[in-house]
Structure formats: C-alpha cells, structure tokens
Amino acid sequence: MNLTLLWSTFNLGLLYGLLVLGVFITFRILNYADLTVDGSLPLGAAITAILIYTGTNPFLATLAALPLGALAGLMTGILHARFSITPLLSGILTMIGLYSINLRIMGRPNVPLLKHGTIFDALTGLGISLRASQTVIALAVIILVIVGLYLFLSTELGQALRGTGDNEVMLRSLGVNTNRMKILGLAISNSLVALSGALIAQYQGFADINMGIGMIVIGLASVIIGEVVLGVKSIPGRLCAVVVGSILYRLAIALVLRIRFIEYTDLKLFTALLVTIALISPKISKRFKQAHKLAVAEEGQKDGLSEKVGG
C-alpha cells in the first residue's frame, strides 16, 4: 500500500470517526442499538451538499447538518420513549422516513460537488495540499468533539445519561426522567452522525441517497475494533479508542480490496462477517477460558492440590 493511499485512508477514518462516536453514545453509553444512523448520515450529507450546490458558504452548510441530525434522533427518541416502540423498530421507522426526506432535500438521488469549494479548501490557500488540509480539519473536528463529549459526560446531566444506559430503574428512583435522557442521547448521537455525513460528502465530492446503507454496522465494527485493540477503560480513553477503531476499520477495508478476487460490492459482506466475529469472539474466548480452567482444575485434582474451582 502506498503512502498516499494510506494517508487518505487515515483521513476517511477520521471523518467516519464522527459516525463511530455517535454510535458509541447510543450503543455503549445508552445501551441502545439505534438504526437511525443509516438515515441521518445521508441526511447530513444531503443538506450540506444541496446548500453548497446552491452557493452557501461550506462552513455554514456543514453546521446545518447538526440540528437536522439532532431532529432525526429526537424523532426516534420520541417514538421509543413516548410511544413505547422498541428501540430497533423506532430507528428503522425514522430511517425509512428519512430516505424520502433526503430525496426531497436533494431533489435527485445524487448531488455532485466537484466544481464547488468545500470546507476542506479552507486551508489550501495557505499553501498546503488538499490532503493535508483534510487531515488538519478532520483532526480539529474530532478533537473538538471528543473534548466536548468528555466534558459533557462529566457533568451532572452527562452522568445521568450514563446512568440511564446502565441502570434505568435506579435512575428513575433517583428522580431522573430517563425518557428525556434517551431522547437527549439519541439527538446528540445523530447530530454527530449527520456531521459525519456532511464532511464525507465534501470529502468524496458528492452526496448520494444510498450512502447510508450499512452505516450502523460500520459504526459497530469500528467501536468493537477500537475497544478490542486498545482495551482502555476510562471514558476519554474509550472515546479516542473508537476513533482509532474507525481508522483501523478503513485500513482493513483498504487491505481487503487489494485481494484480487474481491469486488467493491463484497465489502458489506466482509463488514457483516467482521462484526459477527467481533460480537461472538468474547463468548468463544470465555468458553475457552472456562475449558482451560476446568482442565487446570482436573490437573490439580490429580495432584491432590485443588479444592474447588468456580466457573
């Protein structure tokens, strides 16, 4: 793999890192598998693309993704919290609805941006390359978001959000309106996902109605890869780890694509396999450890050493 490819893989990993941070908030902090992301990522891309296309400042166009993403999360949250629809179904409903909305926003299935200036051109005037400009901007956004999330999660409100995902019964008994917390978490998560979509559209030079398919699985894959590879426990550590997970995931994809008989369209299958393995491997390793313990216990009994080994 040459250096340029490695570099752009890194950049793309950072931009998808925002999606992954969003998924981390719902999946890990709120303990909620939120499928809205498949719709809110293209939502962010759509609004930003059409605004840039019609001449809005790219910076403002990017910011516009945030409230729209939050609105999408709010929708899912209300479906779940107010009307007791299951988390999965609430997310699917919003996601499907967003498909039509995204088409309406763009007015066509694909909006090209190649002839337009994007947020990534902001620094090229300073004499650095587009690729370097992308890295600087993506890093700046990611760092800003990680610091912001860390600070938020250490406030009273943030702690109540964490508690809601951990033990809803207890949080209610402590006077926290957990429904409101879930809605808040979903709104924050999806605004980050939409921001991710806004930046990715500008990076690749177009917004496409189908660019959201499978985003939840990519998000989960990155979260799990980051956690397994870095294995950190603290909140700031975990926030950084999942972004690293996003970069590693992109790297894995780039490597897989170099295998001769693999087509670009096989990637979704590859991702699904990756997540499946990641999800079942803790169980398998647990069973393996148990078997190991038993074997050790039997050894011990033979030697007359062991008394009892709990499984």
Binding site: F152, S154, T155, E156, L157, G158, Q159, A160, L174, G175, V176
Partner: peptide, 9 residues
Amino acid sequence: GMKRRLVRA
C-alpha cells in the same frame, strides 16, 4: 430529585 445541570458532577 434535583434537576441535573451542565456543571461538574
């Protein structure tokens, strides 16, 4: 029973 605020927990 108190309102959760945006201050250090």
